[in-house]
Amino acid sequence: MVSTKLYTAIYVVLFVSATVQVLVEFAGLSYWLAFGVIMVLSAAKAVLVAAYFQHLRFEPRSLTYLVGIGLAAALALTLAASYSLL
């Protein structure tokens, strides 16, 4: 499936990008730009963990869709509820 070497490489990437997230905060970017960069990094890390550590990449796609449905429900609640305040 996947070699230990690749797992190790992914681990290093995750480790580094977590560090980058904090560095972005101190880089003096505008708040919303920093917000965007940091959230994209989080999402990218999550995708890596799910695709390789949870090996969703090598499973039937239905499992990915299943998690996607849960995620869609959570986002619908969060976004619609927050929008209702505006």
């Binding site: 299943l66 998690v67 849960g70 995620l71 429900a73 927050s82």
Partner: peptide
Amino acid sequence: VGMWIFLASDVVLFGGFLGAYVFTRV
């Protein structure tokens, strides 16, 4: 399959908590 189905519900559980946080912060 059972584990993934459970995790999908856990996504919504944490989604509820994070949603509450985002909502309150907004």
